[in-house]
Structures are given as C-alpha cells and as structure tokens.
Write a protein that binds this DNA or RNA. Structure first.
Lengths: 217, 217
DNA sequence: TTCATATAATTAACCAGTTAGTTAGATTGT
DNA sequence: ACAATCTAACTAACTGGTTAATTATATGAA
C-alpha cells in the first residue's frame, strides 16, 4: 500500500514488487556482510533472494548502487534509533548511557551490520571512496556533532573527565562494533558462543560499565 | 614495464631472490590492506613490486598462500613486540600499560595492518575461514591467555576492577585498531589529519588513559 | 461483461571484459 | 653447462551487466 493519493499511476503489475525489492536488499546485506564489497557475487544475491539476476538490475542501477542502498538501510536504521536520544533533554550522563545502550542494541539486533561497514572502510585505502564521503556527511557528521555537544555539556557540568571528541567517539564505536565483527574468531578461541543471548546481555552491561568508568569522574 | 635506461633497481634478472620475495610481500600487504582479500589484484601486486606476475607464483603457491604469508608477517611482528612484555616480571598495572603501549606503537608504525586483519574477519561470515583458525591458534590464543593471566593477577592484587577477559581483551583491541581503520573516514569529517605525528602522540596518551581509567580501581 | 491493449514485473540466455593461474622459454651468476 | 631466477604471452573460468522475450495485471472501449 504505497500508491499515494493524487495521480493514480497505472500499475500493470504482477507479483509484489516491494517484496522482491526487499528480498534483494536483505540478501544483499547478508552477501556484502559476508564477503565484502568486492567479494560479493551478484549471482549469489539473486539466488538467495529467489529472484533472477536481471531483476537486481531492474531495481538497482548496478552492484555499486545496490551496495549504496544497503548502506542507507543500515545507517538510516541506526540514525533513527540514536538521534532521538541525542536530541532528548536528558542530563549528559544519562543521555550518554542511553546513547550507548541504543547503539549497542541496534548492532546486537543486526550483528552483520558491522561487517557491511568494515567493507566500506576497506573500499579505498588512504583516500575516502565516493559514497564513504556521502555516508559520512549524511549520517556520521550529525551524530558526531550531537555527541560532541553532550561531551562538552558533561565536561562543563564537571560530570565527565576531559576527553577529546575525536578520541572518545571512535573509541566507543570501536568497543561496541569490534566485538561483533570479531565474534567468528572468538568463537574458535573460546568455548562460549559470543553471540548467545546471555553473553550479549553480559556484554552490554560490560560496555556500559567500561565506558562509564572511562568517562565519568 | 620499466625497462628504462640507467641503473634503476631492476629486480627480475637473477639478482637477489630475497629482495624480490620481500618486494612482493610488501606490495601484497599494501594491496590486501587497501582492497581486501577478494578485491586485491595479483596484477597490481606484481606491478607494485616491479616484478612479473608469474614470479608471484614462483614464490607463492597462489593468491591465498600469498595472503597467508602476509598474515604471518603482520602477526609475527605483533607477537614479537608484545609477548616479551607479557612474559616480563613487571607488576600487573605496569605490564598492562607496557602491553597497551607496545600494541599501539606497532599498529601506529604500520597503520595499514588493521585493514589486512579486517579483510580476514570478513573472509567468512558466521564460521571461521581455514587460516583464520590457524592465525587464532598460533597468534591470538597465546597472547590472549597471557593477557588473561595479567588480568587475574591484577584483580587478585586489588589493582584492577572486576572484568571478564572475554570482554576486556576485544574491547582494548577495538579501541586501538578502530581508530586507524576509520582514519580515512575521519579525515573527511574533521580538519585535522588523524594520522599526523602529533595527533598519533595525543591518541596514544588518550588510549592509555582511557583504558587505565576503565580498568584500574 | 468481454476483450484488446498497455505496461509493470520477471526471466533465460547471452556477452564482453576481467582475473587467477600456466607455459614455454629467456637470462644470469657460478 | 646448468640450475636458479625471471618474463612475455597465453588461457580457462568467472562475473557484472545486457537483451529480447514472456507473464500477469489493470484499464477502458464496445
């Protein structure tokens, strides 16, 4: 139900186009996460989505555009969860905790997302790729700046230790994200499943405590 | 090709085989770091090493074996720096600080290494790839266990807060590594060069302080 | 109600460019 | 001479992307 009022467009459609598109996107997230941008195979995506490969190119311009759509889905979801918290009127300490929790929960609910992002980090070495810059501008900059505000506020209130946002923010992201992208490796190293429900609950508590201890006075 | 006049270092004739091998390996590190394992091009490696592509296959079985050699170089270097510290007789607090510093310095001196590793994380999604397990066994397990010992010791001495090694270790790695793999993105976001010498010095101080605050009582 | 028509959705088959890996031989120090 | 080192040229397989045809549905005139 997405035909909005106004000019009724003539839809001589069969099947559910939205379903196909969504299936493709979902399969693409998995494939890109698992093999990276260069390693992802369009045939594999089509097969996983139970769809002919040409349909990928019917809905998306090319592999790159499909990857871009994947990035948008991942980051718009993150933004939707996290920005409301940062724009709320909580005191800095609690706002930070809420932010950390929201971020963690989003990643925990979608453990393959970090890998999609890592694939993007990878994309081009020293200089940033084309849509890395776009993603940075559209998603990261606003979040980063709001987060820097919270830090400033907390430091002025004497509740936070003195930290540089340029140091603090990537550290937090690293702590949250790295655990999940390293999970397969950890699985081979320990007996415990790093992604079991209890483990994730423990991990969440640890992350909040760890960063609290590092940031709060 | 560089069949130029003059005495430009012409590897390729029967000069130093070790030099050729080393040149290939160095070029491979850069290429794998920049494009990941699937994105790396053997032609590009050969060209960067000023060597015929067939020579890669003279020294290394195939692309995969070359990547394995790259992994070994990266991780044996890390181990060489870090294990002596962990086996020294320092008190836990100082041993931990030494370890963090050594780790950080190794990565800072080779900022592309994290990307090589990320490429490996990526390699296979849920289950670990063949040589990820090997790397884990050969390099990570011993380091991890020694580190867990330090933690236990420090906690028993009442110098460390109560932390689970399974939580603490990947968090530390994440903090150290992520900054470098995110550097290209940060460069587009801030005015400061995240890899300048002063910035790296600042970053080092931050990391030590950040983790100290999070771990020490 | 019926039926031709337009068009969205979907596919099988194909193609051109790329890439890992090979082969057959050349070069060089000893 | 001869083996270690190195290369130009080649190939088999793969992969992103295209094309031409096909199916299903809505629309509207008769």
């Amino acid at each position: 139900m997405k035909t909005s009022a106004g000019t009724s467009r003539r839809l001589g459609t069969r099947g559910q186009p939205e379903e196909s598109r969504a299936a493709i996107l979902k399969a693409a997230v998995a494939e890109f996460a698992e093999h990276g941008i260069a390693g992802a195979r369009t045939d594999a995506i089509a097969q996983a989505a139970h769809v002919n490969k040409a349909l990928l190119y019917y809905y998306f311009k090319d592999k790159d555009a499909l990857y871009e759509a994947v990035l948008d889905q991942v980051f718009s979801g993150l933004r939707a969860r996290v920005v409301p918290v940062l724009e709320s009127k909580l005191p800095p300490r609690q706002k930070m905790l809420e932010y950390l929790g929201a971020y963690f929960d989003y990643i925990a609910a979608n453990p393959r997302f970090p890998r999609v992002v890592q694939a993007e980090w990878m994309q081009s070495g020293t200089k940033g790729s084309a849509h890395m810059r776009r993603v940075a501008q559209e998603y990261f900059r606003p979040i980063f700046e709001k987060l820097a505000d919270v830090l400033r506020e907390g430091m002025e209130a004497g509740e936070f230790r003195a930290v540089n946002a340029m140091d603090f923010v990537p550290s937090v992201v690293g702590v949250i994200i790295f655990y999940f992208s390293a999970a397969p490796l950890m699985k081979t190293l320990m007996k415990v499943d790093p992604l079991s429900v209890e483990r994730i609950r423990e991990r969440r508590a640890f992350v909040l405590d760890f960063i609290s201890a590092a940031l709060f006075v």
